[in-house]
Structure formats: C-alpha cells, structure tokens
Amino acid sequence: MHSLPNFVHLHLDKTSEELGDIEKRVLRKAHERKIISTDVNAALSAEASTGQRLADGIARVGGSWSFIICFLLFLVFWCVVNTILLATGAFDPYPFIFLNLVLSMLAAIQAPIIMMSQNRQAERDRFEATKDYEVNLKAELEVLSLHQKIDMQVLTELASVREEISRLSKLVAEKGGV
C-alpha cells in the first residue's frame, strides 16, 4: 500500500499541499478503502435546531394542498357566516376588515418562516452537491487506480512474454534454426 503523498502523486497531477479540503478528505477515504457516506438527511437533521425543524414543518404544511383547501374553506366559512349574520350584527361585516388584518398578519409571519426553510433547502442542496462531488471524485480515483493496476499487470505479462520469446528464439538459434 502506498503512503498518502505517493497515492496523491500517482492519481493526481498535484502535490498534497495544492489539494483542497474536499480532495484531501476523498483521497484519505480512497487510500483507506472506506466509503463516503451520502446520507444527507441524517447529516443535516443532526445539526438542525428546534427553530429550523419548526420552520421546515411550517413550510411543509403551509405549502401543501391540504392547507390551501382547508384555508380556502375557512375563508368561505368566514365570509358566509359574516354575510348571513350581517343583518343581525356580524362580527366582521363586509368588507371583512378584521379578516384582512388576520390574513396580513399570517402572511407577515409565514413568509419569513418559509424563507428560512427555503434557505435550509438551498443549504441542503449545496451539501448534497458536495457529497455528490466527493463520491464522483472517489469513483474516478478508483477507476484510475484500476487502470494503473491493469496497466502494471499488462506490462508485467508483456515483459514475461518477451522473455519467453527471447528464450525460445535462443533455443531455435541453438538448434540450428528454422
């Protein structure tokens, strides 16, 4: 087994000092013959704070069809109840000023929470892209390593064949040749 600097020299056209952190980590894993974990969910879930998990949950619910349909039914109910009760003193008569206030406050709170969740999703995407890069780099290194092994095997066998041909040529020459 080669040392890590020799492994780097064999597989890349750089010195160890010229490599980035990701390349060093991938080379270390390749050199140690270890796999690269690609479980993005576990890695990010372990680091998520309570607020981040809450923001993800709110964004998941707030961006679902069930929430949209339920909220639409609530709005229809509000409008119908306050329109029918208008004659007897509605809680929020048309043009539903209190409902507009509630909707504005909901939007003011929900928008930044959804933005937080989207930022986490972008962070997740970057993390996943980095993991994909690491796996692809390691796969490329493994292919290069296999190529080198096959090349060395072919060269060894070729040298062996050449020796055999040379020996056979000498035998034929000694026997009076054909």
Rank of each mutant, 00 (worst) to 15 (best):
N41R: 14
A111M: 13
S64C: 03
K24Q: 05
V61T: 04
E142T: 08
R60T: 07
H11C: 02
S104R: 11
I97Y: 06
V172Q: 12
F71L: 07
E134L: 01
S104T: 14
E142C: 04
Y133W: 09
R124Y: 00
L73M: 15
L101I: 15
K34R: 14
P112G: 01
K138N: 05
D125V: 12
L54Q: 04
I58L: 01
A122R: 14
N136C: 08
F77V: 15
K29I: 08
R33V: 07
W65R: 14
I165S: 00
A129E: 12
E140V: 07
N136K: 14
S160M: 09
I109H: 06
L73N: 04
Q148H: 13
I113L: 15
N119H: 04
T88E: 13
S16C: 06
R124K: 08
I114A: 13
A111S: 11
V102W: 09
Y133Q: 12
F98P: 07
Q153L: 13
S104N: 13
L137N: 06
S104I: 10
A129T: 10
I165Q: 02
M152G: 12
I150F: 05
V81C: 04
Q153T: 15
V80A: 03
V172N: 11
A30Q: 00
S169W: 01
Q153S: 14
F71G: 02
E163P: 01
A46L: 13
L72A: 15
G177N: 04
F67E: 02
I84T: 06
V81L: 08
K131W: 04
V81Y: 07
L72D: 03
M152S: 12
P95R: 09
A46Q: 15
P93E: 12
Q110W: 10
H11D: 02
S166K: 01
L75W: 00
K131P: 04
H147P: 00
R28G: 05
N100I: 10
S3R: 08
L171R: 10
V8G: 04
Q110A: 13
L158M: 05
I35R: 12
R162A: 06
A30R: 00
K170D: 05
A139Q: 06
F98W: 14
D125L: 12
A55V: 01
S37D: 15
V178Q: 10
R162P: 01
K131A: 09
G177H: 10
M115L: 15
I22K: 09
K131T: 10
D39T: 07
Q118L: 14
V172C: 03
E17A: 14
E134G: 00
I165K: 00
S45G: 13
S64D: 03
L86I: 09
D21H: 05
G51A: 13
T88S: 15
C70F: 14
